[in-house]
Write a protein that binds this DNA or RNA. Sequence first.
DNA 1: TATCTATACTTGTATAGACAAGTAGTAGCC
DNA 2: GGCTACTACTTGTCTATACAAGTATAGATA
Lengths: 243, 243
Amino acid sequence: MKTSTRPIALYSRIKQHLVTQMDSGKLQPDDRVPSETQLATMFAASRMTANRALKELSEENRIIRIQGVGTFVARPKPDAALLEIKSIAKEIADWGGIHSCEVLLLKKETPTPDIAAKMGLSADNPVFHSILLHKDRGVGVQYSERFINPEVAPDYLAQDYTKITPSDYLLGAAPVQEAEHVIEAVRCPSHVRSHLQISATEPCLCLTRRTWSFDRVATFSTMISPGSRYKLKGKFNRGKTNG
Amino acid sequence: MKTSTRPIALYSRIKQHLVTQMDSGKLQPDDRVPSETQLATMFAASRMTANRALKELSEENRIIRIQGVGTFVARPKPDAALLEIKSIAKEIADWGGIHSCEVLLLKKETPTPDIAAKMGLSADNPVFHSILLHKDRGVGVQYSERFINPEVAPDYLAQDYTKITPSDYLLGAAPVQEAEHVIEAVRCPSHVRSHLQISATEPCLCLTRRTWSFDRVATFSTMISPGSRYKLKGKFNRGKTNG
DNA sequence: TATCTATACTTGTATAGACAAGTAGTAGCC
DNA sequence: GGCTACTACTTGTCTATACAAGTATAGATA
């Protein structure tokens, strides 16, 4: 039996201290968290140690760090924009272990009444519509579908949307004010069947999460044939939006 | 228009270099990755900078770091044990923003034929059965259900399973050799309805991922009433299994 | 008033060094 | 052969320092 004799690391104790304060309510959402320098003094640590604690808490979405301003307790509901981008990327990462994907289709087209209503557009107002096909390593196929209002589309889309990479497309989204997420299970739609080469008669359940925001609709789906086992795999290579 | 003028950070370039090597096949799974010291020399960087690059790649599950041994390229299919534990934790984190949960039920009982078959047990062979109720911050309710073969149960379960904490239960699992994951949508079962106080007539979809391994079955479910919007939230506070 | 500037503070990145802790192999001893 | 001690190498943590870059504000200036 081997047990770790190493004491709890200092950066970890700083993290724990802050988490306790947040969970107990002493630090409320939007409250300012002590700066790296202050934490370093409080715990007789170097700034780098405090930096590590705050950095990890930031990655865990417990706090928000703004260069030049400070660090603040994150709200229980994180910003929808952050959520929308991160959740899509994470979903692909966690469910599919996708390491590569490609844009099958990216064009303007009229949205369905359902989509148009959700986006606050008229049905004849064209939107950017794309399907991204994600190939995992030999186990399954997934796809993402997005509708973006051209009037508020990101710059790279308006300029030359053929040059964007899938990761740009997934991660480099325009700011979003609010988003709603709906999880549902539907039959695999015909246009997806054609892309994924699934015959119309072949049963295929489409497990879908749909995200609405004021300027876009994003759908992430996993195709499941009844009785099939979908094995989870791997990890998506995270990216950053800023070049 | 504000664009970042900051050049790509050195640690980021090191990451990119390694990712390129892995994606191109120059670095194969299980291959040894240059040590922190070697990378530091290669990029004229300090060891801490190389450390940061490797640390982040490790968090992204692209590499595996072993203290005293070295760093290696992770396999596309990560270890099932790691996957099972991480995916459950992540699922809770990503879908629910759960910050607390409680064990509602933890007792021995006879498994259903379905469960027994999946666990390779006879139907009269009792299993540990627990339901964990996860309360997120006012938006929804989720639950996890687990069946564990007592003969191969973790030590803390065999000794005194009333003392374990939910996070121990979720994260401190026994080693698993292999696991299979199935995603399905079913009607909310009656025993869950009673726990969640949903009447039998109230429609409720139960979006479920079930994980089988040689000694256990774990189910993670999200309850969705038709038409309801399930808003994604927050972040789970990561923990460690080692004390 | 409106605008610019200096300043103080914040986080982001990077360095050089140090010690701790874990692993694997080798050499020497019994 | 079997065991121990040593060595070399690895990652983990931490310090002290430095400069870059972003933000807010008070004060000076036009």
